[in-house]
């Protein structure tokens, strides 16, 4: 088993238990949307998604999503498809690895 395939436990405030699953589902949809944006080089749309992920991720207890969002926003501003692709891959991998533990 490679490190990337290992599960990662993320502890989140139990007061957010009702809304975190929908938030994560929306990020999975973002991965699909971002892949299309990458093909179309739709940097402005990527910047908006990155900006929103940066602003909301930590609030939901998911600091990595804020971090990826921050990097994605910058990649879109730089119009760097390569950097943006790295962010989309990182988001996809993160969503595949995490297990949420409500505390």
């Amino acid at each position: 088993m490679t490190e990337d395939s290992e599960k990662m436990i993320v502890r989140i405030d139990c007061e957010l238990e009702e809304i975190v699953p929908a938030y994560l589902e929306n990020r999975r949809k973002d991965v699909v949307a971002l892949s299309e944006m990458l093909e179309e080089e739709a940097f402005d749309a990527m910047r908006v998604l990155g900006h929103r992920m940066k602003g909301s991720g930590s609030g939901y207890g998911l600091d990595a999503i804020s971090d990826i969002g921050n990097r994605l926003e910058q990649a879109a501003k730089d119009q760097s498809s390569a950097d943006a692709a790295v962010c989309v891959a990182a988001l996809d991998a993160y969503l595949g690895r995490i297990t949420i533990l409500y505390v």
């Binding site: 007061e15 957010l16 009702e18 809304i19 938030y23 929306n26 929103r52 602003g55 909301s56 609030g59 939901y60």
Partner: peptide, 15 residues
């Protein structure tokens, strides 16, 4: 303008 921020703040403050 981000509905997910609105949801987060609304739910947390209502609780």
């Amino acid at each position: 303008d981000d509905p997910e921020i609105c949801t987060l703040v609304s739910r947390f403050f209502e609780k």
